[in-house]
């Protein structure tokens, strides 16, 4: 049977997503029986939700991005500016 420290490593490193069916079953069994690892797994999952919320697309960035894009075009393609 998997130990808690092995479960924490599999979950946090992302190795859990790559496991074969037998090891995946062992992991599921452990999570079914172990409250602490279940809480740990839920907290890791919540980290993903939190960073998607704060690092995901934001409306305030739109104007800034338009300006940035025109700066890149001006610097990256100096000839097209001369032509326009």
């Amino acid at each position: 049977m998997l130990k808690c420290n092995e479960v924490s490593r599999l979950l946090a490193s992302g190795e859990a997503e790559e496991l074969g069916w037998w090891h995946k079953l062992q992991l599921r069994m452990h999570l079914l029986l172990c409250t602490h690892c279940r809480r740990y797994a839920a907290q890791l999952k919540n980290l993903g939700c939190m960073v998607r919320k704060v690092w995901g697309p934001s409306l305030e960035d739109r104007r800034l991005l338009r300006q940035l894009e025109s700066d890149i075009v001006r610097e990256g393609f100096p000839r097209s500016e001369q032509g326009s």
């Binding site: 690092w55 995901g56 697309p57 960035d61 991005l65 940035l68 894009e69 890149i72 075009v73 990256g76």
Partner: peptide, 10 residues
């Protein structure tokens, strides 16, 4: 540039 600007900035 247009397609990935937002992702790279983020």
């Amino acid at each position: 540039v247009h397609a990935y600007l937002d992702q790279i900035f983020r």
